[in-house]
């Protein structure tokens, strides 16, 4: 579904990721692990179009999207839940949800939209209860759920998740991972970036290890879980 070949992307002059190749099969969960500053977020931003300076190829559903702008890429079916819960903090929860479906806001879609909002609230009941609260006043876990819910409103085929567990209590992390698995079972393909390597490797089928901008290791997640280098560097020995 997503095929990346020799992708290099830069912020200023210096590339933050170099010569990355990666494949995400339709219906799968793929994880990327790596230390701080390895370039994980940069890779996701390059895929979703937030970074323009890049070379190589990014093929999604058979088409090269490397030159497309972020808003067009969303329309193609890739939603990116960016690092640090980039919600619209000064707006109400329901406004965030509505904006998630920005591309579907035409009159003839009204009914469908309402139905979709209902489904998302069903998946995240806490958001339904707090739909009129200002998003910035939600708890950290609720904000992360809102960020995911908003991304789902665009009906992605591929969901890019950047550290969904960051700063959350273990119980909440458990909830979030359960939701990710449920989304996957419902047919959404997932590319997951995580600091929490153990959890990320448990739910993924395949995984990549990123170090200082380059892919250094890849393999079935179960194999990486027992790999001595991965154990030493990312799983705490």
């Amino acid at each position: 579904m997503l095929e990346i070949r020799n992708l290099t992307a830069a912020y200023a002059a210096i590339p933050a990721i170099r010569d990355i190749s990666l494949t995400v099969p339709e219906g799968g969960i793929v994880s990327i692990i790596g230390a701080n500053g390895a370039g994980k977020s940069t890779l996701l931003k390059a895929i979703s179009g937030l970074i323009q300076k890049k070379s190589g190829s990014i093929r999604f559903a058979g088409q090269d999207i490397i030159c497309e702008r972020a808003n067009r890429i969303v329309a193609r079916g890739i939603s990116h839940v960016a690092e640090g819960r980039q919600i619209f903090a000064h707006m109400k929860v329901e406004d965030n949800i509505h904006l998630g479906a920005y591309l579907y806001h035409r009159r003839r879609h009204r009914q469908e939209l309402q139905e979709h909002i209902r489904q998302v609230y069903e998946m995240f009941p806490v958001l339904g209860r707090r739909s009129r609260q200002i998003a910035g006043t939600l708890s950290g876990g609720e904000q992360q759920m809102l960020a995911i819910a908003r991304a789902l409103m665009a009906r992605p085929k591929l969901l890019l998740l950047d550290e969904p567990s960051m700063g959350l209590a273990p119980l909440v992390v458990h909830d979030i991972f359960a939701i990710i698995q449920r989304l996957n079972q419902m047919g959404t393909t997932i590319l997951l970036v995580e600091q929490n390597a153990r959890a990320a490797l448990r739910i993924a089928a395949y995984a990549y290890v990123l170090e200082t901008g380059q892919m250094v290791l890849e393999g079935p997640a179960a194999t990486l879980l027992t790999d001595s280098r991965v154990k030493a560097a990312y799983l705490g020995g």
């Binding site: 702008r69 808003n71 969303v74 980039q86 619209f88 903090a89 904006l99 665009a154």
Partner: peptide, 24 residues
Amino acid sequence: TIIGKAMSACSENAAAAQLVGIDV
């Protein structure tokens, strides 16, 4: 209106606005 909200969204967080499909 959704366009108005999209405009506020751009002023609040342009990157997040693009990620929901708003053409900044």
